[in-house]
Design a protein around this nucleic acid. Structure first.
Lengths: 205, 205
DNA sequence: TATATCTTTGACCAATTGGTTAAACCAAAT
DNA sequence: ATTTGGTTTAACCAATTGGTCAAAGATATA
């Protein structure tokens, strides 16, 4: 959303709020700052969204849905499990790279208010979307393509862990890397292929 | 620190502050709440630590050092790389399980104030402590114990990712798991062996 | 006992913050 | 031209928050 001026007040508020909340978190965010960034009076925030809590919840769900639905589709395309993993990792990395501040913001806010996750899960219909993937994994296990001892739950979490953690731990990794003379950005670039290989090596029969 | 009454005021403040900051984050934490939990007057906080910022920094570094030095040693023991990985994962999981709220707190605060990480790295002497591990990995690579294409940086991040992410994403995973009829605590328990196997499968020659 | 130093407190303050309200603005309908 | 409805604003408010300060307690020293 570059041309924020063209949007109407309500939409400008949402974009501004997304930005400020992501930058400072719920507790650190200031209604005045959101109003300034949206180019409107502070009272208008309350006119459209009643309270900081309600504004936050609405914005949080909008942004989270935007990002999640971006890569959740990767698992719904056709292809072998290896292809799906590679496709997911590519899309995931792409999205993370464009939204570096999102992961830590997301997990932090969810930790402070787990109810948000219930609402998000309901909105995104996780359950339905992953059923086929689970079936496919069981099939490929029996077909001898992947190891017998692979567990779907753990595999999924492993993939997401490996993909998203470098963004959550960005400043930590960056600092340690530079301490060793490595470059963080180069590291992220390498990771696009490294992670896929790591996962596939680990599960193929 | 169970018997908080036996400590002197300054120590009680540190323990109370650690608790409140970990629970609410820097922005969400209230000096009054820390004072209450420490059983002292709010003015005493400022007598000992001057400001919220200084109190936070001191407490953050104390808690982070406590936890980091707990598992960093795992890599300094003798043994093959496989043994070290298993030892690290065991210790790491143990510590994470006892300090569930720490990871998200830690990474969130570091993201908002990366300077903290500089101070922590200096305090913990990361560089010196990992040199030997890197040498060992190169040796075992040449000896044909682990794959030629294993990269030390990525391997380290992979291990930490797989280990710590389930705690960062706790409410997220919990919600999705229950949506599928799985149990999160059981999942964590399984993970102790699953992760080690996953990593070792992936790197052994 | 008197004095000096460190510890602890209650009362207080200035600044900030989320939120309210009454009035002004403005486009469309009559 | 006037009314009507939604939109936007400036001014304001009550509550909270980090922080201060002078005085009271406590402890050790002489």
């Amino acid at each position: 959303m570059d041309n924020i001026e063209e949007l109407n007040a309500e939409q400008r508020i949402i974009e501004a709020a997304a930005d400020v909340f992501e930058e400072s978190g719920f507790d650190g965010a200031r209604m005045q700052q959101i109003a300034d960034k949206a180019g409107i009076n502070k009272a208008l925030l309350h006119y459209y969204f009643r309270s900081k809590d309600l504004l936050f919840e609405k914005v949080f769900l909008i942004v989270a849905e935007r990002i999640f639905s971006g890569f959740i589709k990767a698992f719904e395309e056709d292809g072998t499990i290896f292809q799906k993993i590679e496709l997911f990792l590519t899309k995931h990395q792409e999205l993370l790279y464009k939204n570096r501040r999102f992961p830590i913001f997301f997990f932090n806010e969810i930790s402070r208010n787990p109810t948000l996750m219930k609402k998000l899960v309901a909105k995104l219909e996780f359950n339905n979307r992953f059923k086929n993937l689970i079936l496919q994994l069981e099939n490929e296990k029996e077909a001898g393509i992947i190891r017998q001892d692979v567990d779907v739950k753990h595999l999924m979490i492993n993939i997401v862990s490996l993909s998203v953690f470098p963004y959550i731990g960005r400043p930590v990794i960056k600092e340690i890397m530079s301490d060793f003379g490595y470059n963080y950005e180069k590291f992220l670039e390498e990771r696009k292929t490294v992670v896929a290989n790591f996962v596939i090596n680990s599960i193929k029969a």
